[in-house]
Write a protein that binds this DNA or RNA. Structure first.
Length: 568
RNA sequence: GCGCCCGUAGCUCAGCCGGAUAGAGCAACGGAUUUCUAAUCCGUAGGUCGGAGGUUCGAAUCCUCCCGGGCGCGCCA
């Protein structure tokens, strides 16, 4: 489906061509409602090489614009902007078009890509904690959005189930394990054992050496160590699964670090053979001498002791995803501190001539009220499970307060949707690179740009239809008599303009902002325009507006991985 | 030392591939409720966009330098 913006952009291009001018400038939404609905700076851009002044150019362009079937006559304003104002009948017509379009007006992306998204990726023998929240929530939202736009998405949970830490885990398992504690809470006991071993190892070189030996045995396929490793992975997966269920996050494949274990020697061999890697100080290293940014930052792919590290695994991962999974693009939803590491990986991949589009989707940290990395009072990472449970408990208290007569099952369901939604929305409504301060009070607030506010708009809509006792009527024509109606109809048409933009720079926050504005417009409409009490044909028209608003809210929130309750 | 990210209202944040008088929310203040869920709406007030230069018709946005905060920089992941 064409949006107003895409139609106007085409009309502008042909007007420029007909006026004998090169294609230039942008067609954007108006910066201020006073200027209308859309604007272009084409004349200003063309006026840079001043043979004519921008205002005169703008007039010339306007003379060639044929937009009177859906716009008022374009106006030249300011230094040479051309402003467009939509005609109400065109808005009404377009809204009906959106209503009948399966994707709510959103066009499929071209070309369609197969995209592997690497996100979440918790480590075995460690519970998921706040540090995983951004990657998981952001990655899942981007996966949903890409899929909605028609891409083929493979969600890959690249779990950390191999590597150095297992030497310690196995040493601890063999020497420090409390069987009863293991039965009570397996993961907690594994974590305890790991931590204690880690402490001992830092003090005592003999313990460190013993851990290294355990690791060597594991990597050599020692039966006993493999069994222990398998058990640890299984226990950890239980914890991950629980958290993923709570978050409603589901993966298509789970190829963790261990999956690539036996491919690592091949990676090193290949890179040595091609001359991309070389031996330096007994390690195998890739240098980037011709790249100023990386010139003094070499990348080790095989350690002096013959062991491999995470760079090696990541290179094997690229190879697998491109060759076996046939990925056109790989998105790494990984925190900002790993920027350098991924730059190195991408650069090596480029030298190996992988064609896939590799993107690092970086993000900032979650901070506590003290502006430092969020920790528990005792200085530990906050387990994600606890955090989500607290979100639901807090939401539950508010539900009890506001709507005590609801049934128990219903309350549990609502509290889940509000609590988890609040946590996700906080993350997604902010620009990903910004560090944000975690605040229960703000995220669960009933006011302002929060998930509950958006959910409430949806609930109000559902309530209208419950009361009406009928679905939205089928009509061919909307009546937009009140400014609040026109406003919301325009917003509904914008959904299709917003969604594709998200992937330009991986910013779901622009969708969150849009949904907030939509909910805001709806609340204004709701106050100004009675629906059920109004006379026909306004009543049917308003019901349709409500219905479409509800569907856009639901769809938009679903793209963010947030659910909507029917009541709250 | 080198590199990356961030600095916008009292607070939390948008806006950043250059565009018109820099926007929201919270908190503050003033209004609206015989209701379709007030978990709401309407309004007022609040700014040297960290600082200084530069490019441009035009800079929060691009470039340089400085200040402040965070994070990384061969054998952890």
């Amino acid at each position: 489906m064409e949006t107003f913006q895409s139609i106007l952009a085409k009309k502008l291009s042909s007007a420029l061509a007909n006026a004998g001018l090169p294609d230039a400038g942008e067609l954007t939404t108006a910066t201020d409602p006073r200027f209308g609905d859309y604007q272009t700076n084409a004349a200003l851009v063309l006026g840079k090489q001043p043979t004519e002044n921008p205002r005169a150019l703008a007039k010339k362009i306007v003379a060639h614009l044929r937009v009177d079937d859906f716009c008022e006559t374009p106006v030249v304003a300011g230094a040479g902007f051309i402003n467009f104002k939509l005609r109400p009948d065109a808005i009404a017509k377009k809204t009906i078009e959106v209503l009948r379009h399966a994707g709510l007006g959103v066009a499929k992306a071209k070309p369609k890509q197969r995209i592997v998204i690497d996100f979440g990726s918790p480590n075995v023998a460690k519970p998921m904690h706040v540090g995983h929240i951004r990657s998981t929530v952001l990655g899942d939202a981007l996966a949903r959005i890409a899929q909605f736009l028609g891409h083929e998405v493979i969600r890959d949970n690249h779990i950390g189930d191999w590597g150095m830490q297992f030497g310690m885990v196995i040493y601890g398992w063999k020497n420090l394990l409390d069987q009863r504690a293991l039965q009570r809470n397996p993961l907690a006991e594994i974590v305890r054992v790991y931590k204690e071993t880690n402490e001992r190892a830092t003090r005592d070189p003999q313990v460190r050496e013993a851990c290294r030996q355990e690791l060597v045995k594991l990597q050599a396929g020692d039966k006993k160590n493999i069994d222990i490793w398998n058990e640890c992975v299984a226990f950890s997966m239980q914890d991950f699964q629980h958290v993923f269920e709570m978050l409603d996050v589901h993966y298509d494949v789970q190829c963790g670090e261990s999956f690539y274990h036996d491919r690592l020697p091949g990676v090193v061999e290949r890179l040595l053979k091609s001359g991309i890697a070389e031996i330096s100080e007994a390690a195998v290293v890739v240098f980037f001498r011709d790249n100023p940014e990386l010139a003094d930052k070499p990348c080790i792919i095989r350690k002096r002791d013959g062991g491999f590290n995470y760079a090696t695994t990541d290179l094997a991962t690229v190879d697998y995803r491109v060759k076996e999974l046939k990925a056109d693009a790989i998105w790494y939803v990984v925190g900002a501190p790993q920027t350098l590491h991924l730059k190195q990986i991408f650069e090596i991949a480029r030298r190996e001539s992988y064609a896939a589009d590799l993107r690092h989707i970086a993000f900032g940290s979650v901070l506590g009220e003290d502006r430092k990395l969020m920790k528990t009072r005792s200085g530990e990472n906050v387990p994600l499970r606890d955090l989500l449970e607290e979100a639901c408990n807090r939401a539950r208290k508010i539900v009890d307060e506001k709507n005590p007569h609801l049934g128990e099952d219903e309350k549990i369901d609502i509290a889940q949707k509000i609590g988890v939604g609040a946590v996700k929305y906080t993350d997604l409504s902010q620009y990903r690179m910004t560090d944000y301060i975690f605040s229960w009070e703000k995220m669960l607030s009933l006011h302002g740009n929060t998930a509950p506010y958006l959910q409430n708009a949806y609930v109000r809509i559902r309530s209208i239809f419950r009361k009406a006792g009928e679905p939205a009527p089928k009509i061919d024509k909307l009546i937009l008599s009140d400014p609040a109606e026109t406003n919301i109809a325009k917003r509904l048409c914008q959904f299709a303009e917003i969604v594709p933009q998200i992937l330009n720079d991986f910013r779901p926050n622009i969708l969150a902002n849009y949904l907030f504005e939509l909910a805001n417009s709806f609340h204004t409409f709701y106050e100004a325009c009675p629906v059920l009490k109004s006379e026909e044909p306004a009543r049917s028209s308003r019901l349709v507006l409500c219905d479409l608003t509800g569907r856009v809210l639901q769809c938009g929130l679903d793209l963010l991985g947030i659910k909507v309750p029917e009541k709250m």
